[in-house]
């Protein structure tokens, strides 16, 4: 391994990491928002919308992100909808992420025993009070480990962005391998940078999961 090569290419990787992190986290935040909204629509069985959301979830959970990106990036412009590669990356991640987040949150909502809302109702609470004070807080905390798993999944999925010519970590590594034949250095930096991006999230996820599983409420 040639450390001079590594030193030389470090700035490129840092730049690429910045881009990946930016697109990744924007997509994640938007997909959580989308997931919450969709799960609520499913929970309250909003007519028509719930059907659309069910179709959307099945479509995006059963196709690869890479194919979705190709469609969004190369297909949509033919309809006159022109978006930049970055917007496309964020949009793609939000759409696939939203479908996963919806499922996670929906199952969190349905995990709450009906006795919870019944006892809240019997205390005279209105339906919206039951939902906001009793159901929602519990559903969110049940869903958090699932959300963390989805976040890690989505951060890993960002690795396909180079396919729509975003200059992310994979793109940088591929360049270095293809043009400069610095395979070892390129791969080394690639692994290190993905570790930097994912290890903290993974550790946090494990920590939260443990807390939720063993402690629940009260410690």
């Amino acid at each position: 391994m040639n450390w001079n090569v590594i030193r030389e290419y470090l700035p490129l990787y840092i730049e690429a990491l910045g881009l990946t992190v930016k697109i990744g986290w924007l997509g994640i935040i938007l997909s959580i928002a989308l997931g919450l909204v969709c799960a609520l629509i499913l929970y309250f069985k909003v007519p028509l919308l719930q059907v659309i959301i069910k179709i959307y979830i099945e479509l995006f959970r059963n196709t690869p992100l890479l194919v979705q990106l190709f469609f969004l990036y190369f297909g949509l412009p033919k309809l006159g909808i022109r978006i930049t590669a970055q917007t496309c990356g964020i949009l793609g991640l939000t759409l696939i992420g939203g479908s996963y987040m919806t499922e996670t949150f929906r199952s969190g909502l349905s995990a709450i025993d009906s006795i919870q809302s019944e006892s809240a109702l019997s205390l005279g609470m209105k339906k919206h009070q039951v939902f906001f004070y009793v159901i929602l807080p519990q559903a969110i905390s049940i869903s958090i480990p699932g959300f963390m798993a989805n976040i890690i999944f989505l951060l890993k999925e960002t690795s396909v962005f180079s396919a729509i010519s975003l200059m992310d970590l994979m793109f940088t590594a591929k360049d270095l391998i293809g043009l400069e034949y610095k395979t070892i250095e390129a791969l080394f930096l690639l692994v290190v940078f993905y570790l930097i991006m994912l290890l903290p999230v993974s550790l946090l996820g494990t920590y939260i999961e443990r807390r939720v599983r063993y402690a629940a409420y009260g410690d």
Binding site: M170, K174, Y194
Partner: peptide
């Protein structure tokens, strides 16, 4: 943990490009 953290793309690159080198 490796499988949990590393994107399959990265693993693909390592095996496909790395082993040759």
């Amino acid at each position: 943990e490796i499988v949990r953290i590393m994107p399959q793309m990265v693993l693909l690159f390592i095996v496909y490009f790395g082993t040759t080198r």
